[in-house]
Simulated assay, not measured.
Amino acid sequence: MTKVQFYHNAPDQLALACELVAKAQAGGRQVAVRAADPAMARKLDLMLWTVEPLAFVPHVMNGGPLADETPVQIGAPGSDARWPHADILFNLAADLAPGFEGFRTVVEIVGRSEAEKAPARARWTQYKTRGLPLKAFDAERRVAL
């Protein structure tokens, strides 16, 4: 059964995503990151090159030629029909990711604005209705809610 974690109150959604993706990949996890749109996906791609000065987070855009053998994939709605890995999915988009049920863990990162909170509440309700185990964390204070 898919476990779902929400990180609420993120001061910078992409910075937190980079940090959590780097930690997951360093821990041996295979990661899919679903950005809100192609522009966000490109920005995340650039940020992952510099997340830590002496670290490297191997990543490619979803559907790229090395996608099947790279531990971190980045995609956006429309390019997320097939993920080659099914370990952990970071969802930065406003809707549920297609096929999220196939992942072991889904991580939702929610910013501070009402424009980000309202869709996150709807996703929380959708996950809860499906009976999935949910955990919530305050991203800024780094505590469970």
Rank of each mutant, 00 (worst) to 15 (best):
A86V: 10
N62Y: 03
I74F: 03
T50A: 12
G64C: 09
D87L: 09
G63Q: 06
A120M: 01
A115C: 02
S113L: 08
H85P: 09
H85Q: 12
A97F: 04
G64N: 10
V110Q: 07
G63P: 10
L48M: 09
I74T: 03
H59S: 07
L66W: 11
M61W: 08
Q126N: 09
M40R: 05
A35I: 00
A26P: 00
A15T: 03
A17L: 01
L89C: 03
W124D: 09
R142K: 14
V33E: 00
L66E: 15
L14Q: 04
V57R: 13
H59C: 06
P38E: 05
K43A: 15
A39H: 09
R104F: 14
R130A: 15
G27D: 01
F103A: 10
V110W: 10
K43Q: 15
K135A: 15
P53W: 08
A93G: 09
A15R: 01
M1I: 05
F90T: 04
D95E: 15
V51C: 10
G27W: 00
E69M: 14
Y127L: 07
G99H: 13
L46T: 14
F90E: 10
P77N: 04
K135Y: 07
F90G: 05
L14P: 00
A118W: 02
M61Y: 10
F90C: 01
M47C: 06
A144N: 09
G78N: 05
P53N: 12
A35P: 11
S113D: 15
Y7W: 06
W83G: 04
A67E: 02
E19H: 12
K3A: 14
R34W: 08
M1R: 12
T125L: 10
T129P: 00
R104Y: 14
L44S: 03
E114T: 12
I74W: 02
D138T: 04
P65S: 15
R121E: 08
G99N: 14
R142Q: 14
G131H: 00
A15K: 08
A139E: 02
A122P: 01
C18M: 01
D12K: 00
M47F: 08
L20R: 05
R142L: 15
M40I: 04
H85V: 07
A81S: 13
A136C: 03
V57H: 06
K128F: 02
Q25G: 00
Y7N: 05
D80N: 11
R34L: 14
I88Y: 03
A120F: 01
V21H: 00
R123L: 01
K135R: 14
R112M: 13
N91F: 02
K128H: 07
A32W: 04
G75Y: 00
M1Q: 13
D87T: 06
V143S: 13
L132E: 06
A22P: 02
H59Q: 03
F137W: 09
